[in-house]
Nucleic acid binder design. Sequence first.
DNA 1: ACATCCAAAAATTTTGACATTTTTATGTAT
DNA 2: ATACATAAAAATGTCAAAATTTTTGGATGT
Lengths: 213, 213
Amino acid sequence: MKTYSTNEIYSDLYEQLINAVIPAGSKIKPVELQSKYGCSTNTIRDTLLRLSKIGLVTFQMQRGFRARETSPKKRSDIAKFRVLLEQEGAALSIRKAGLDWEIRLNSAHHKLSHIEKLMTKHGLTDEHLLVWSSAEFEFHDALISGCASDILIETYGHIYAQFRQQFVAQERDFGANYFESIIHEHATILQAALARNEEACKQAIHDHMKRNF
Amino acid sequence: MKTYSTNEIYSDLYEQLINAVIPAGSKIKPVELQSKYGCSTNTIRDTLLRLSKIGLVTFQMQRGFRARETSPKKRSDIAKFRVLLEQEGAALSIRKAGLDWEIRLNSAHHKLSHIEKLMTKHGLTDEHLLVWSSAEFEFHDALISGCASDILIETYGHIYAQFRQQFVAQERDFGANYFESIIHEHATILQAALARNEEACKQAIHDHMKRNF
DNA sequence: ACATCCAAAAATTTTGACATTTTTATGTAT
DNA sequence: ATACATAAAAATGTCAAAATTTTTGGATGT
């Protein structure tokens, strides 16, 4: 039987939350996870407190932990906030960042689009979705990486994680042709960013997200 | 000798961090706080993990806790990010909020300006600064409270706390006449908000913060 | 002087037991 | 039936000690 280090417990729970294996809004009881991870309830508690930092888990004194709740309103809220941060991060990057940024962005997009093409050809398995999810983050993260604001990048990371948590159930339903639009949208963002066209890039980011509002 | 409940430990540490009684960047050792609060190191650890959620404390595995570091660059970063969030929150409020919002904002400003006038007449004691600090937050929080975005409001709260932590040392130095400018700036923000003038309000928020860039 | 290695000390993490609080289930009265 | 009180069960929080890891300080050699 596999034994888990603390960091592995963290990553494992992170993934389960991101992919709604632990469904949004559901209660998380340390006692129940104890046996799976082979550690004390206290270690689980510790890990859940750390996860609550990035907003994947909510915590209330004497009431324990929950996977962050979801609702149409919350999803819309997160999506809009994500647009705000990404637009600002991208605009700052376009204004200030150098060649390194362009290269990083370009290669992140290359990787992402490779995976996306694969997904339209073959069906989308759970495993594909996982790889795609991390490549998609890398692309959007690269997009804002030139903004020179650590706090913006840090916050964006949290919001992106929450976004995935809230929308993963939806994405599974849209099916393969959904990804054809996504491919085009990512390309449009990339193009505007490399052309250093701030307004076009903001628009492209907005359009990429507007189905989630 | 005073005994502390868990929530009191949290609030006490929160205030110490906000007011840089625990200086930015300094190490925080559970063992040393144990005797003061009359509890186990584990409870302190727990509390510090909760404080790390709002960014007042940083945590690294096997390396413990620190009050978040400060530097000119970080202060500038926080100040700019705060402007971004507050501008967006205020603009949305102006666009969408109703009479309740106006009333809340107005009364928060009334309270704040009362305290600020007191502070210019008499000197600024540490106690005054504490009252002012919470009234100032209430004002800015009221300003964005009509934005209908829970995640924006939540994030703003974290950023505001970090802002205080980073700048409190500075504020003590500026002295009493510093508050005369602040009074005027707050009034300008209020005026623009109540006049539902989005651009003027954004400008006023920017001007309020620009000394910290 | 500088780096490296080692042992002692200090700090952090984990644990299992115990105390407290919340939730659930049951019974009683209105 | 509904509401309310109460007891049992479950979940959460706290603790002190043990295990692990990091840091410190000194001895050694280059």
